[in-house]
Design a protein around this nucleic acid. Structure first.
Lengths: 191, 191
DNA sequence: TCATCTGTCTAGCGATGCTAGAATCCGGAG
DNA sequence: CTCCGGATTCTAGCATCGCTAGACAGATGA
């Protein structure tokens, strides 16, 4: 009986090893460097082992993304512990953007790659729900009559747009702070 | 002498044929279907011909993207011919979003793929400049004290965020219109 | 001790982007 | 009309990708 448990434990450890290695590799050399051969090499197993844990490469990326949602949610929650509404919004936005900047590859996995994660559906994984909830509870503080969910989606979209356009060089790195301030001003204007 | 000219003309035609075929193929079956073999097959030439016109597949995507910028710029310009500021902004935003919806593959080439297009630099191609200018001249109408360039970047980011998150299923298709209205309300609020 | 069975690896498949070298075509000189 | 030379196009192949079948090995329980 106990050997069974040990095996399951080892499997779980290796599962984690794969995810963490993929993430580290992606963060240090980009997702292009995360090939199944390279990944297998890095964890010191052969390729087929990866496929005994995940359906394919996409599933590995999805697992990394899931880890990201958990971390992002936690980060957003600690950021929204501020009193004044506008300050809370700013803290929320800053936390979000910092997360994206500090973990570019992770952010990509969460929001640009990994299309097979079910987002607004019944079978949406907990971390995804939690991430949106964290945003929502922060935004709701200054919704002030406006639909909180809708406002959250707009805030999220705008932040995401800033991030992804900046990253691709579409927006100059210089105006970063000014853009964020302008955006926050507009969003917190309740007519 | 004239054969030389004819050859150049034919080369130019084939260049266009490649770009248009790549675009059509991407729009109908997605960029994944646009392989060099498939593309060569479609234009009824062999693979190496592609490489006598473009440095590689990325360059072909970039050429498609460039075509997109020209079209987008034209579309935005006709949309901003409205009197009232708020109506102009709405027309502008709608034109942008419609363009993205009608040409999803093209939009992807312009803003998510093709990283090798120089955006805000000295050697930025004319169509890209023109596209941003079209947005800028539309947004400037209701800037009302706010920095027009900065405001344009924010508007653009927000629209792009809405589009890309909607497309990936991150945002429910239902609230589309409500989100756009809310966003426009916030952006046109001059405190 | 040995058969079984789970787990792992080696080797290979089809498809990708890209390229070297062979083959072909075409224009112009004799 | 013929034939040469240079440009053009194609055939064939390389390295790499994600993924998998079948051989192999090592641990488990009788």
């Amino acid at each position: 009986m106990s050997t069974q448990q040990r095996r399951e434990r080892e499997r779980a450890q290796r599962h984690d090893l794969i995810v963490k290695t993929a993430r580290k590799l992606a963060e240090s050399e980009g997702w292009d460097a995360v090939t199944t051969r390279r990944l297998a090499d890095e964890i010191e197993y052969s390729q087929p082992v990866l496929y005994s844990h995940f359906a394919g490469k996409d599933a590995i990326v999805a697992a990394v993304a899931l880890e990201g949602f958990t971390e992002l949610a936690a980060r957003l929650r600690t950021a929204t512990r501020t009193g004044e509404p506008r300050a809370a919004l700013e803290a929320l936005a800053r936390a979000y953007m910092e997360f994206a900047e500090e973990n570019p590859a992770l952010y990509d996995a969460m929001f640009t790659m990994a299309v097979d994660l079910p987002f607004g559906q019944d079978d949406t994984p907990e971390p995804l729900r939690d991430g949106f909830q964290a945003l929502l509870s922060g935004v709701a503080q200054f919704a002030d009559g406006r639909d909180p969910a809708l406002l959250t989606e707009v805030v999220w979209s705008a932040l995401h747009g800033l991030i992804v356009l900046s990253r691709g060089g579409r927006l100059p790195a210089s105006g970063r702070e000014a853009r964020l301030t302008l955006l926050l001003d507009q969003l917190s204007a309740t007519r």
